[in-house]
Design a protein around this nucleic acid. Sequence first.
DNA 1: TATGAATGAGAATTCATTCAT
DNA 2: CATGAATGAATTCTCATTCAT
Lengths: 202, 202, 202, 202
Amino acid sequence: MNGYLAMPKKRDNGKYFKIIEAATKIFAEKGFYQSRVSDIAREAGVADGTIYIYFDNKDDILISLFEEQMRLVLENMISKISSLDDPAEKLKAFALTHLRLVEENQSMAEIIQVELRQSSKFIKEYKNEQFAKYLEIIAQIIQEGQQKGVFRKDIIPGIAKRAFFGALDEMSRFWVLSSRRDYDIKTAALQISQYFLEGMKA
Amino acid sequence: MNGYLAMPKKRDNGKYFKIIEAATKIFAEKGFYQSRVSDIAREAGVADGTIYIYFDNKDDILISLFEEQMRLVLENMISKISSLDDPAEKLKAFALTHLRLVEENQSMAEIIQVELRQSSKFIKEYKNEQFAKYLEIIAQIIQEGQQKGVFRKDIIPGIAKRAFFGALDEMSRFWVLSSRRDYDIKTAALQISQYFLEGMKA
Amino acid sequence: MNGYLAMPKKRDNGKYFKIIEAATKIFAEKGFYQSRVSDIAREAGVADGTIYIYFDNKDDILISLFEEQMRLVLENMISKISSLDDPAEKLKAFALTHLRLVEENQSMAEIIQVELRQSSKFIKEYKNEQFAKYLEIIAQIIQEGQQKGVFRKDIIPGIAKRAFFGALDEMSRFWVLSSRRDYDIKTAALQISQYFLEGMKA
Amino acid sequence: MNGYLAMPKKRDNGKYFKIIEAATKIFAEKGFYQSRVSDIAREAGVADGTIYIYFDNKDDILISLFEEQMRLVLENMISKISSLDDPAEKLKAFALTHLRLVEENQSMAEIIQVELRQSSKFIKEYKNEQFAKYLEIIAQIIQEGQQKGVFRKDIIPGIAKRAFFGALDEMSRFWVLSSRRDYDIKTAALQISQYFLEGMKA
DNA sequence: TATGAATGAGAATTCATTCAT
DNA sequence: CATGAATGAATTCTCATTCAT
């Protein structure tokens, strides 16, 4: 059932995901460059060499981990959003869902924030399509709002999507990296959505 | 005005800054971990060993580079803001100045965005102190606005400052990393300030 | 008989001992500080990195080499001595065995004499424990002789053991370092034992 | 008055000896290879480069230090011995003087013991003539004793000189390296001389 | 498939020595 | 003579990756 091209990795037994999980933990703890392949192997309970049966190299672990996770995140987000009609509600839902995902998945969030989204090595060489799709969800909400006449026409979706994502992202970075939690998720999600909703209101 | 203690070891001749400049270029090009100390030395036109007369180790180059730059950025931003009265104008000025600094100083911006986040915990934590000061400028503008009654009282400055910075930051990350420039700086700065100004208007 | 904990990391194949042997040769030839880890690796026929699978670092090679050898030397010496009854005969046997061990194991002897003394304080202190046991064999012979009434009671074993060992050691140092051999081993062993036996006779 | 050939070093001001003194302290503390030329320079209160005006290189410092000191030691020892007639008294005097010199000059003693006499690098390349002269003093005492009929004829001076020196040396190594002092110098010197005197008595 | 010992290229850092001032 | 900043060769150790078992 798995297409050859779309799923070139061996995933028969659980090892592929065991390694992904282990890498998620290790990368989040120490960062990509500080993490040793053998650390991941130990954490996953496999031999060093086994990693290279499932992944091409260390870079590939990071990218696979990211793709794997982003697929889930995108699915999750789309299902949450698509059941709603009102663009304003969609935006609020996006904010809340995003922050919740970060909270439920701290390690992954830290990796995406620190290692992957910002890593010049990867961001430059690796065409980050998953992330672009994620941003595009926001852009679509905004465009929909503009078509429905609830958001101002002069809002530039290409700017607003980044601004909105950046606002959420900075907030979650703070949480992820500082382990402090001054404001609860709902409050933060609401405040941020509010700034933008008011700011973009027609 | 700079205290003796804060002063880097030696700056007699221009070597200290020549190395900082070289490192800025190299780090921006290849990333911190991909950069070799000898790359920096070659770029700076000094011997490898000379680096270690002016810096303790590779990490110290990154930290010094950051400190050197943040001093300028903070000074610059404060001088731009303090000449204005209206909190709304201050926020707009912050946005514009921030994006301009990024543009004028691409390599440095890239390093701060990309490298300082993936570096060792020590550096991350170190960075946060300087960075916190920068964020605090925004918080102060917001509080001032609330006191003057131009911003809503229910805005939480601790959230808003991050949201606003994150919006700008995401925008500039896009520029820095993608080398595309779909929107000009003024447009982006205005749009982003506008979202927030409208969103926070009393 | 050897406890698990005292056992070097891995000895599956002969690599551990191949490296010890290679190091013995190289250290004896060039001295500890003049020897390169890669020299040892080449001599042992392994890759540089392989050394670090079996040893923690360069110092650890020297320590292991010494420990490995001292175990043999102590066992050897004790078995030679314990079969004898007369303290005078024991002392002669000690002298002869010591000089023979040195002769049969020139490289090792040179390392113990030369390198362990000039190495870091840690090694010096470490060495003393094993070495103390060796000296104690002499002290016991002397005490036994005093109890049996064949050695004078005013002999201080703590001084005599060092004097006797020092006499042998200086003799063997001469051999080891000079590669001259003016006197044969038996002659030297007998002369030296004689000085002391006469000197300590009751 | 200083012959050109015998005294090629510049010693005008006190710098030459200041450096020798500093090196003596530093080498004794950390060992030759662990000592940095700049450590010596700092200790001597001169610039790094100044060292190279007075010495050819780091090795040369060690050798010069040794020669300088051995000259004094030899002079001292010869003057002490030559005033005595009885070979037995001479041997006792040698032992006492040797141990006193060690005690009065701990740093130097440690260097001679650890760094120079045992250092394969130097001992092999550097023809240690001063040390040979020192040993020869002992041999002469023994030969004199044999001629006077107080020492047995079958004593081999070439062996006995080393045995006697080795006995003293091991004793002093113990003092120098362990910083313990279980027996006072006179006791040790007397015991050791006694062993040999009795052992060599005709 | 799975293993993990072995590999060896690679990189940060040190420090004896030089030489322009 | 004296200085000490600059040099750059040299060396230990790491770690991603391979491959014989």
